[in-house]
Every structure is written in C-alpha cells, then in structure tokens.
C-alpha cells in the first residue's frame, strides 16, 4: 500500500485551515475535503495519515466519513456524477435518468467504471429544484435534463 501524504500546496492549505478553527477537531471536515480533492477518495492510508497529523483517533474519522454522503470510503472515478432523485426531480424523471445513465454506461450505483472515468451516485435533494431534473458533474450543476442530454453531457467528459 502506498503511503499518503499531502502535497506541498495542500500542506500549506492545511496549515491555513487550522488557523480558521479554535480546535483541531473542528478542522477535520475541511481537511477531509482537501484530502479527497487530492486523492479522490479517503482510503485507509489517507485516514491513517490524517489521524496521525491531527491526533484524532481513526475511528472518529471513519465515523465522520461514513456519516456524510460526499466523503467516499471506496474508490471513485475521475468524474463524480451525482443525480438528484428527490421529489421535484423525480417528478420530472430524475430516477429514470439515473437508471438510464447507469444502464447506458453499464455501471452500478456508487461503483466506479472500469476505466476510472465515471462514478455515478444517487443523491437526495441537491437544492436545485427549479431546474429539475438536475445533476452535479464534478461540482457543476446541470439542470433541465433529459436522459439524452444527460448521456451526452457524460460522454464528453474526459
């Protein structure tokens, strides 16, 4: 297993993050975000490193990772796609789009594709109901989708 470490830029960011909080535990979530930006998912090595760095027991970090939808304790892909399936989006076909793109790319929910390109996650309300049905592709909102436009948008991804 490869040992994880923050790169130089992120080390600096990490030091800056600590100044934002009055205790080190509070900085855990931003640090996890930072680690996930660098490593794409929070592997046991990442957790071990952060635990050592911040002096927080590993189990407490695992608790946090498992609690939040946007922290991944399993490998993701280059492009993380989150499809909203809450009330308004489902009314306009969000579930069909989710299922449709899974079928089209022959994927399973929350499993990365073989080539490491796509990772599709079913989400509850993304807070963009006016453009239902919507999804997030790498933190960017895409609204007013149909299955066709959704597939098109995903196909052009790197």
């Amino acid at each position: 297993m490869k040992k994880f470490e923050f790169n130089t830029a992120n080390k600096k960011k990490y030091q800056e993050l600590l100044t934002h909080y009055d205790d080190i535990q509070s900085a855990l979530m931003p640090v996890l975000h930072l680690a996930q930006e660098q490593h794409s998912w929070l592997s046991p090595e990442v957790v071990a490193h952060i635990s050592e760095l911040m002096g927080i027991p590993e189990i407490k970090i695992n608790e946090v990772i498992s609690f939040y939808d946007m922290f991944y304790d399993h490998p993701t892909a280059r492009n993380v796609v989150q499809v909203c399936t809450n009330i308004t989006c489902s009314m306009f076909g969000g579930r069909e789009i989710h299922k449709g793109i899974l079928d089209h790319f022959q994927l399973h929910n929350m499993r990365p594709s073989q080539d490491g390109k796509l990772y599709i996650q079913k989400m509850e309300c993304l807070g963009a109901c006016e453009m239902a049905p919507c999804m997030r592709i790498n933190n960017i909102y895409e609204g007013h989708l149909t299955l066709k436009t959704a597939v098109q948008k995903l196909e052009v991804l790197p």
Binding site: P57, I59, K60, N62, E63, S66, F67
Partner: peptide, 9 residues
C-alpha cells in the same frame, strides 16, 4: 482509548 465508534447513518 477510542477503539469503538458508530459508523453509517
């Protein structure tokens, strides 16, 4: 000793 935790929701 912090060995136990509650994971998942």
């Amino acid at each position: 000793t912090h060995e136990l935790g509650i994971v998942n929701r």
